[in-house]
C-alpha cells in the first residue's frame, strides 16, 4: 500500500503538517530530535502546575504577592519560571469588585512558562471573538456566573506582554499550606475563565 493510502484517513491539516515536516527534515532545516525535545518540554515539563505554584505562593506570602503585582516577571523568576512567551509578565489580581479575563483576539498569545501551551478553545475563533464582546456569556458557558456588580475586565494580549490572573483565594482555605493551595488552582482560573476549586472539591487537600 502506498504512503498516500496509509495517510488517507488523516485530516488535511495533519497531512499538510506532516508533508511540511518531512520536507524540512529532508532539507536538513529541522532536527527531528529538537522537535521531540520541544514537544516533550511542553507535554511534561512546562504547564499550568507552574502557574498554580505562583498563585499559591502569592496566597500564602504577602510580600511575594506585592512583588508579583509590582514586577511579575521578576517575581515569577524567583520560582524559576522564565523564558519564551513569558519575557514580560503582568499579573492581574481578582477581587470582589473586579474579575479579570485574558484573551488574544489577534492570534493565541499565552504565557507559556507559567501555563504551558494554550488549550484548543483559547485559540478558537469563537472564544477570541466573544470574549471581548460578551464576556459574561462566555463565562456562563464555563460555568461561572458573577454578580452584576462585579466588573469584568477583559485583557486583549495584542502585544508581547503576557497576562496571568491571580484568582481570589477560596473561602475555607485558611490554614492550608502552599502545596495544598496549589491543588486548588486550575488552569482556567489563571486565564480568568474559571474559578479556583474550593477545598471540599479536592478530597485529599485538608
Amino acid at each position: 500500500m502506498s504512503d498516500r493510502h496509509e495517510h488517507a484517513h488523516l485530516p488535511d491539516t495533519v497531512l499538510r503538517v506532516k508533508a511540511l515536516e518531512s520536507l524540512l527534515v529532508e532539507k536538513g532545516l529541522v532536527d527531528p530530535a529538537a522537535l521531540d525535545t520541544l514537544i516533550e518540554t511542553y507535554e511534561h515539563k512546562v504547564g499550568p502546575r507552574n502557574g498554580s505554584r505562583v498563585v499559591a505562593r502569592a496566597w500564602s506570602d504577602p510580600d511575594f504577592k506585592q512583588r508579583l503585582l509590582r514586577n511579575a516577571s521578576a517575581a515569577i523568576a524567583e520560582l524559576g519560571f522564565t523564558g519564551r512567551q513569558g519575557e514580560d509578565m503582568v499579573v492581574l489580581e481578582n477581587s470582589e469588585k473586579v474579575h479579570n479575563m485574558v484573551v488574544c483576539t489577534l492570534c493565541s498569545c499565552y504565557p507559556w512558562p507559567v501555563l504551558g501551551l494554550p488549550p484548543v478553545w483559547y485559540k478558537s475563533a469563537p472564544y477570541r471573538a466573544r470574549a471581548v464582546i460578551d464576556p459574561r456569556g462566555v463565562l456562563k458557558e464555563f460555568g461561572v456566573e458573577l454578580p452584576e456588580t462585579t466588573e469584568i475586565r477583559v485583557w486583549d494580549s495584542t502585544a508581547e506582554v503576557r497576562y496571568l490572573v491571580l484568582p481570589m483565594r477560596p473561602r475555607d482555605s485558611e490554614g492550608m499550606d502552599e502545596e495544598a493551595l496549589a491543588e486548588l488552582v486550575t488552569r482556567d482560573s489563571m486565564i480568568g475563565t474559571g474559578l479556583p476549586l474550593s477545598p471540599s472539591q479536592v478530597p485529599s487537600s485538608k
Partner: peptide, 14 residues
C-alpha cells in the same frame, strides 16, 4: 538549525 541539545537554552533565553 536548532539542535536538541540547545532547545532548553533557546526557550530559556526567549
Amino acid at each position: 538549525v536548532l539542535r536538541a541539545s540547545d532547545v532548553g537554552k533557546v526557550l530559556l533565553k526567549g
